[in-house]
Structure formats: C-alpha cells, structure tokens
Design a binder for these strands. Structure first.
Lengths: 223, 223
DNA sequence: CGCTGAGTTGACGTAGGTCAAGCAGAGTGG
DNA sequence: CCACTCTGCTTGACCTACGTCAACTCAGCG
C-alpha cells in the first residue's frame, strides 16, 4: 500500500479554468470536429461523464487514468499529437482525461461505433482502438512482470519511438505521471533513472529531457 | 526478480500431442469455421506464428500469455466458452495460447480485419476486441495499483461473473496460472486465499472451487 | 535574491518474493 | 486394498525490492 501524493488528485486551478475556452474552427482535419484548447492540468472529461465525443490530439499531450477509492492512480496511457482517445463501447467514460501541458485537440461527435459504416472515420477509430489494445497488452507485461529499472528502460524506449525516433527524448510528463503509469513511486522512478545514468545508458541534461546513450542495452533490459 | 517455476514453460506431453487432432465438422456456429479439440496444456498457437486464424472457445478454457527472455510469464487473459481470441492487427501472433483443460474451439480463417465489411462476423470480432480492451484496462489498474489480497479478491469476482454469476466458482486454472495473471507468485496467491478464508469472505471446499461468502466485502476490497 | 515546487537522495520499514519443508488427493502397481 | 509416488497446494522462516518519510538540492520566476 502506498500513500497518495496530494498532486495525484490535483484540480485545475482557477486560471486553468479561465483558459478552458472552446474555439470553433474549420480546417482539413476538423471537417467533422471542433478544435479546442485547454491549459496544463485541465480536465478534458471525467470518469462517469457521458461519452458523447471522441478526441484527437493536435498539439500538447494528454493523460487518461483511473483512481481507486483511496486515491491510488493508474495512468493507462499518454496521448501525443495524432493520437485518438476517449473511445468507449459503453455509454460513459471509464477514465478521466487531463492535459499534461497546454494542449490543442479536435472533438468529434461520437458516431455510434457499433454501426461500422466502413467509412474513413470509423476505420480510423477502430484502428486507434486496436493500437490501444496492443499498447495495453504490452503494458500488462510491464506492470505484472518487470522490475523498476526494466519498467523505466522500456518506458523511455517507447516514448523515444513515439516522440522523436532519435536519441533525445523530451518528456511531456512529470515524475509523478511516470510513476503512476509504471506502477511505481516518484522516488523509485528517480532512483531508476539515476541508476541508468550511472551505468552510462542514459544522460539527464535536464529533468524533462533524456538522452538514450545505449539503446541496445536499454532494449536488453526491457525484454 | 523472481525465480521461474519449471512448469511455467511446460510443454505438452506426448500423450497430449497424440490427442491434438483436427476434427473437421459443420454446425450452426461453424458455418465459417472448423471445430478442433486439444488436450490440457496443448499449444494452440505460439508467439511469432503467422496469425491466419481467429478462435472461439466452445468448451474448456484457454490462456494467452507472453514471456520475458528469462521465462517470467504474464498471462494477459483467460478465455472461456463463447470468447473469441487470437485476433491480431499485425501479421503475427504476439501471444502464445494454450488449453487450460481439454478444450474444444472453432477456428475461423481470418478475414482481413482492416476491411470492415460491416458483416455479422467482422462485427463480432470488433466487439470481442473492444471487450478485450476494456478487460486489459481494468487489469492494468489491478496490476499497477492493487495489493495481493485486492488482486485476488478482484479476480475471484471477475471469474464469478464470467463463469457462474452465482456464489460458487469452479476455477479452470491452477494457482500458477492465477499468479502469472495477477503479477504474483503461487505462494502469495495461496496466502491471499487463506487470508480471505480466515476473514470469512470466501470458502475453499476444494482447491479449484471457491465459494464467495461475502461479495460486498470482496467488492469493497477491489475498489 | 528569496520562494516555490519538482526532483533527488538517504535511512528505514514492509509487502511480497524466495527457499524449503510438509501435506493431501489422484493415479499406479503389487 | 493398501503402500507409493507424483503433482499441486499450503505454510513457515527468511530476504529484498520497493515503498515511506524526511531532508536536501536546484531550476524557474516574481
């Protein structure tokens, strides 16, 4: 059992709420949807909300998570530009979504997913769901069977693939977000990072940016 | 880090292989597929196999799992009669599937899932995938943030819902399978079960059958 | 420059893993 | 019908990876 960090249930600040303004617009990608911008830590939808929309990140990043009754949090995924999130098969959202940073996204009215019309949009949503499933399956292996250093190494490789493909990763999330995604605490994430640094596998020029110095060795750790 | 139980990489016995006979047949449910029977612990497909088929359990039960290089195993799901498993978006299977007990299932030639024809079969497969995703998301919360007793309590409730709906559950899997599903060891699963028994929440008439004496209390543990 | 919040580090505690012994039910053979 | 083994499960004693608590560092910012 672990204590619940206060910030893991943080609310958007008043300033945040003020900047939480719908911005109707039209563009190639928004033919069917509406663009919105929200500030860092703003809530996009909450667990239990009616799931009337599907979302696509344009810029920034989003976390989706669930809480246990005592506040323990599991972040199931981070959503980066291009990712679709918020699909549900039932009526309601089973997750809460919050912006990791100031974020722009497109809101699509949820066409009934059960009526698979074979159209471009429904195909895109189904593809997004399949990708979510694969990621979730990889993540179950990580959560169930990897130790702290292996978890962090795997995470860095995945983020590197998704963000840059290069050797430098600029993480959009805090240590707490990483911890709640990997089933660890901030302290253990921090210790694992410094461990990897001492081993020469990564460099830590700043807190949020990480250089993967030896991807092969990192990959060996995560398999 | 944990030791690898020898049986977690057990191979089908020779006797098992002999009983591994394709049984072509036709019935209402098999209009598009072929029925097969396999013995307990037989492999149905392996990680890396070409994913040319999709499977539906008729009787018995199936586990799908992945291994780390040193043999640590994560069972992502158990598949019971009526469940469809083995869908992949890529070319190859990313899991191994084995029978938990003597099992009958139907094998469907994999229609290309990307061409969503809106037909009955492709709708059924997409529904199965969505259900898998929801289960995987629930399981990530369990693996990442629940303690041993909470994991076992949650698992018993889920299995009870899926198998009987009543208060008696006849588990089709061993303690080792439970452990590798819940991210624990057999010893911890065993201790958690006797803990729940001592608390009066469950009864253990035999090893494989469990009586849920206080579902409300169990549910409180898993939330 | 001092304040603030995020991150790191160290000392210590504990849930759950490890190792080893023992037990019970299901086959098997005499 | 009873000893005999085999396999899965439980239990106990001990160990360790990771959580907890608390002090400290440092970057960003008014």
């Amino acid at each position: 059992m672990q204590t619940v960090h206060a910030s893991s249930i943080s609310q958007p600040t008043p300033a945040t709420l003020l900047r939480h303004i719908p911005l109707p617009r039209t563009s190639p990608d928004t033919a069917l949807g509406t663009t919105r911008m929200v500030a860092k830590d703003a809530e996009i939808f909450a667990e239990g909300d009616r799931a009337a929309f599907v979302y696509k990140v344009v810029s920034g990043a989003v976390r989706t998570f669930r809480l246990l009754s005592d506040g323990r949090r599991q972040i199931d995924a981070f959503h980066l530009p291009g990712d679709i999130f918020g699909m549900e098969t039932g009526e309601d959202h089973r997750f809460t979504a919050e912006a990791l940073a100031d974020t722009t996204f497109i809101v699509y009215r949820r066409c009934n997913l059960v009526t698979l019309d074979g159209g471009e949009f429904s195909r895109q949503v189904v593809t997004a769901m399949m990708r979510s499933l694969e990621q979730a399956q990889n993540h179950m292996l990580l959560l169930g069977r990897k130790n702290a250093v292996e978890k962090v190494a795997t995470f860095l490789l995945v983020m590197s693939d998704r963000i840059s493909g290069g050797n430098q990763v600029d993480l959009p999330m805090s240590r707490l977000d990483m911890a709640d995604h990997l089933g660890l605490t901030i302290e253990t994430v921090s210790r694992s990072l410094t461990h990897l640094e001492r081993e020469g596998l990564i460099g830590l020029p700043t807190h949020r940016s990480i250089v993967l110095l030896n991807k092969a060795a990192l990959r060996r750790l995560g398999t």
